[in-house]
Simulated assay, not measured.
Amino acid sequence: MSTLAHTMMTTARAADTGLAGPGELDRYPYAEARGADRVSLPAWDGAESDLGRVSRRAAGSRGRGLHGQLVQQLGQMIVSGDLGADRPLVPEEIGQRFEVSRTVVRESLRVLEAKGLVSARPNVGTRVRPVSDWNLLDPDIIEWRAFGPQRDDQRRELSELRWTIEPLAARLAAGHGRDDLQQRLGDMVEIMGHSLAQGDVITFSRADAEFHSLLIQAAGNRMLEHLSGIVGAALQVSGGPITGCDRPSDVALTHHARIVDALAAADGTAAETAMRQLLTVHPEVERVVPAPREH
């Protein structure tokens, strides 16, 4: 086993919580933060009982503190429809309900405004914007939709988007000859193989997410690389032990390895084909593979 594989698997077993930044191989699982790190937020009237639990869990895992937790709470409530355009968001009321300062409320609403969820205008106040104005490619909004009433649509849309992005990325990556990235992709396959043999689903999922992120980087297209966060979000909300998907399979591992082999041979067609086959059988997406729509 390579040094990288050993280090990653050891780290995975020791980690209890947390979602690290890109490249840190620490994207699973969502887990309840320890008592000292978790802040209990009062539930907004009319919100579903599990909504606050999910939002606190996500915010606690990311270590965002009060500001991040309020963004998560309000964001999920907007996306779920618990807060609509018919009801203005009054900063003073939010501060009282969630027991946070004006500064926290103000900064949280600014974040939501940047995501297209709300708008603040003089003499009108802060109101929820229509879905057509939301930044649906924002990883946070992807997550909120995936854990809300729109979960089925979100996962289908993410799967369709992956089918557009990743086969193209695999084809392009085969023509760039990035030996460093190809080596790292091979390392991820090695890690996935060892974790599969040991039944370590968490490490498999982390290596899988890193594999797909690296592949898009290897495509050498900066605009395509900008979409890598979407793929990461798709893997994060569509699979893994948190949503109870099937265990990683030998078939999925085989297709990952075939992609690496195709890249080494600079065979774009084979790389694209292997990626399409992977997206068909991969545990994280097999239940949301795009199907023809009825009109």
Rank of each mutant, 00 (worst) to 15 (best):
residue 6 H to R: 15
residue 214 L to R: 04
residue 45 D to G: 08
residue 29 P to L: 08
residue 186 G to W: 01
residue 106 R to Q: 12
residue 273 T to V: 08
residue 276 R to S: 09
residue 235 L to I: 11
residue 77 M to E: 14
residue 124 V to C: 02
residue 14 A to G: 11
residue 223 M to S: 13
residue 148 G to C: 07
residue 123 N to D: 12
residue 117 L to T: 09
residue 7 T to M: 09
residue 191 I to G: 05
residue 38 R to D: 10
residue 132 S to N: 09
residue 71 V to Y: 00
residue 92 E to W: 01
residue 71 V to A: 05
residue 274 A to L: 02
residue 39 V to I: 15
residue 54 V to Y: 13
residue 69 Q to S: 14
residue 136 L to D: 06
residue 110 R to K: 14
residue 80 S to M: 07
residue 70 L to R: 02
residue 218 A to M: 06
residue 102 R to D: 15
residue 167 P to M: 10
residue 180 D to C: 00
residue 251 V to Q: 12
residue 271 A to K: 02
residue 129 R to P: 01
residue 130 P to H: 10
residue 159 S to L: 03
residue 118 V to C: 08
residue 124 V to L: 14
residue 38 R to Y: 02
residue 123 N to L: 15
residue 49 S to C: 02
residue 126 T to E: 02
residue 291 A to M: 10
residue 213 S to M: 07
residue 66 L to S: 07
residue 57 R to Y: 06
residue 203 T to H: 05
residue 103 T to S: 13
residue 23 G to F: 09
residue 136 L to V: 15
residue 56 R to S: 14
residue 151 R to N: 09
residue 115 K to W: 08
residue 8 M to C: 05
residue 116 G to Q: 10
residue 1 M to L: 11
residue 173 A to S: 08
residue 120 A to S: 15
residue 107 E to Y: 07
residue 34 R to T: 14
residue 206 R to K: 04
residue 138 D to T: 05
residue 175 G to T: 02
residue 145 R to F: 04
residue 284 E to S: 13
residue 33 A to M: 03
residue 207 A to H: 00
residue 46 G to M: 05
residue 138 D to Q: 04
residue 219 A to N: 01
residue 213 S to E: 08
residue 1 M to W: 06
residue 237 V to H: 01
residue 209 A to V: 07
residue 44 W to C: 02
residue 144 W to V: 02
residue 233 A to C: 06
residue 167 P to E: 11
residue 188 M to L: 09
residue 152 D to A: 15
residue 21 G to T: 11
residue 22 P to S: 11
residue 44 W to H: 12
residue 157 E to C: 03
residue 94 I to Y: 07
residue 115 K to D: 09
residue 87 R to C: 07
residue 109 L to S: 08
residue 31 A to H: 06
